[in-house]
Every structure is written in structure tokens, then in C-alpha cells.
């Protein structure tokens, strides 16, 4: 049965492998140049000099060098964002949608379901094959993408941020496997490959959005951090903490001494500039809700497990549908 699954999609496996190789090559080449700039340009040394400090001076915490680096590679970041975001969905759809639907469309099920193999075994094999290929391809891709993001993460501290977080680490594999099984389920229930792909896109985006925006911040209770507006030290953004609460994503709130909300965002005023804090008072402080950078991999694991669990439920539902409901 595995032989049959392989033989049927042999061309697609080779195409996927080739695409992955091309992607790896491209990322390797571009990533290498980023890496060397990161080290040769002095940013790496500067960050090392900070030694993982939680608080850094307002200027002098490598902020300028980091911004310069980030600005220089801004087009690269944009391209990465644009392309990588869709990879899990596209790979999943491509492998999942035809897994069952194509055989229904071609009616080759009349052939294979009247050999000696049960529908259950056939369905699980189709799903497993698609999932394994998806996971393997996305595994390699995510591995190289994570490496590629290294310097950018260090220079921006954005690793934990929405969309950036979604493209590295572990979650892309979870997303892709989820997309595969969602597409397979829709393919089995609608019987149409293309229609399944379309509905998968909608469903995938909806679920991803829901989880990322409403659930991810709640994986663990966030920590609070307060520091004065009038200060010479600020939190080290380059550590990669995730500021998710307060005035809006990624920023906190500015509060008056009496606990009243003054403004969104962050305000830092040197002691020598009273005009800066005149409207909010000397004792105003910044309040942030955040997840520390050290939780990154925990969150990645939780979210990946979540999507894999969803995928498993979809797989079971698909097999049940094929056995019991499919006429």
C-alpha cells in the first residue's frame, strides 16, 4: 500500500524535494551574507558585549548598530515575510487536497477499494504518506529558515512577534501538517481537489488567525514589567521578549502615578528634559505585559502540539468519513 502511494505521487515527491533544495540553496546564500555582515559589521560583537543584560542604557545598548543592520536588510525581511508565510499552507494544500479527492474524481477507488485492502488501511496510508512528505519538506525548510533568521532576530528582537514567530522554530511544521489534513478532510468530504484547496485556504487562515491572536498570548500567564518614564535605562529589546499587551501589540502603556492610563506605547524621558514628561508627571511609568524570550521554545512547542492535535482529529474524521459516510 505504501508502495502504491509512493508510486502514484513519485513525481510530486521529486518536485517537492527539488523545491526544498532550491529554497535551501537560496536561503543559504542570502543567509550567509547576512551572517557575515552581522559578524564583520560589529553588531555581533556589540550584542555579545551586552551579555544578555535585561536593562540597557537608553542609547548604547547596540540600538543604533542594530537598526542600521535591520534597515540594510529590510527588503530581505519583507521578502521573507511575504514568501515564508504561505509556504506551510501551500505545501499542505498541495499534498493534502488530492490525497483522497483525486482518487474520488478519477474513480480509481473502484479499482483500489476492490482489491484486498480495507478502506481504513487505504485512507490511513494516503494520509500518512502526504503528512510524512509535508513534515519532512517543512522540517528541512524550517530548519534552514530558522538559521536564516538568526542575525535578524538578534538585530530586531522580533523573534517572538506575530508573523516572525510563525516562520521559524517548530510551528511551520505544525501548520503545514494541519493544512495537509484539513485539505485531505475537505477533499474527502467534497470529492473535489480544487474546491478543497480553496476552502482549506479560508479555513487555514481563519484558524491560524484565531490561534495566533486570541490563544497564543494565553498559553501562559504573562509577566508584568513597570519602569519609570524618567530613566536612563530601558529594557533590552534585543533579547527578544514578546510584548503583547497594553496599548496594542508589541507595546505597552504609559501610566500616570495614580494608575490612570495616559497614552499607549512607551515613553522614555531623560531627567534633564522636563518638557518631555510635563503632561504626565515625573512619577509616570511604563507598564508592559510580556512573555520573556526564554519562553519562545515552550510556546513553539505548545502551538505545534496544538496544531498537530487538530491535524490528528481531522485525520480520524477523514478516515471515518471514508469508511462510513462515503457512499
Amino acid at each position: 500500500m505504501i508502495w502504491l502511494a509512493w508510486r502514484r505521487r513519485r513525481g510530486a515527491v521529486i518536485a517537492t524535494a527539488a523545491a526544498v533544495l532550491v529554497a535551501v540553496a537560496l536561503l543559504f546564500l542570502t543567509g550567509r551574507s547576512m551572517c557575515s555582515t552581522f559578524h564583520d559589521g560589529g553588531l555581533a560583537a556589540c550584542i555579545e558585549g551586552l551579555g544578555g543584560a535585561r536593562w540597557v542604557p537608553v542609547s548604547g545598548g547596540c540600538q543604533d548598530e542594530a537598526q542600521a543592520f535591520a534597515a540594510r536588510f529590510f527588503p530581505m525581511r519583507l521578502l521573507g515575510l511575504a514568501l515564508f508565510t504561505f509556504v506551510p499552507m501551500v505545501v499542505g494544500m498541495f499534498w493534502g487536497a488530492p490525497a483522497i479527492a483525486r482518487e474520488l474524481e478519477d474513480d480509481t477507488v473502484s479499482l483500489v477499494w476492490t482489491q484486498g485492502v480495507s478502506r481504513r488501511r487505504w485512507a490511513w496510508t494516503q494520509l500518512a504518506f502526504a503528512t510524512v512528505v509535508t513534515a519532512a519538506a517543512m522540517g528541512v525548510f524550517t530548519w534552514i529558515a530558522t538559521w536564516w533568521y538568526g542575525p535578524l532576530n538578534a538585530a530586531t528582537g522580533d523573534r517572538f512577534q506575530w508573523l516572525i514567530y510563525d516562520q521559524q522554530g517548530l510551528v511551520p511544521v505544525g501548520y503545514a501538517v494541519f493544512a495537509t489534513l484539513l485539505a485531505a478532510f475537505l477533499g474527502a468530504t467534497t470529492g473535489r481537489t480544487v474546491r478543497a484547496m480553496a476552502i482549506t485556504a479560508v479555513g487555514f487562515i481563519a484558524v491560524r488567525f484565531g490561534v495566533a491572536v486570541f490563544w497564543r498570548p494565553r498559553f501562559m500567564s504573562g509577566l508584568e514589567r513597570a519602569y519609570p518614564v524618567v530613566t536612563t535605562r530601558v529594557p533590552n529589546r534585543l533579547l527578544g521578549d514578546w510584548l503583547y499587551g497594553g496599548g496594542g501589540p508589541g507595546v505597552g502603556v504609559v501610566m500616570r502615578a495614580n494608575g490612570e492610563r495616559a497614552a499607549g506605547g512607551q515613553r522614555v524621558c531623560p531627567p534633564t528634559d522636563p518638557a518631555c514628561f510635563a503632561d504626565i508627571g515625573r512619577d509616570a511609568f511604563n507598564l508592559e505585559l510580556f512573555h520573556p524570550a526564554s519562553r519562545f521554545w515552550t510556546f513553539q512547542s505548545i502551538e505545534t502540539a496544538l496544531f498537530l492535535a487538530l491535524a490528528l482529529v481531522l485525520a480520524a474524521a477523514t478516515v471515518w468519513w471514508v469508511r462510513k459516510r462515503l457512499t
Partner: peptide, 18 residues
């Protein structure tokens, strides 16, 4: 219905394995 991309020999192999 037969599997479009598979050869005749492949179909026999499928039959044998299944």
C-alpha cells in the same frame, strides 16, 4: 478506471501487493 500515470506493469505490481 486505471491509474493514469502508472504503467501496466505497475498495475500488476499493485495487484500483487494488495
Amino acid at each position: 478506471p486505471l491509474y493514469r500515470d502508472l504503467t501496466v506493469a505497475d498495475h500488476l505490481e499493485m495487484g500483487r501487493r494488495l
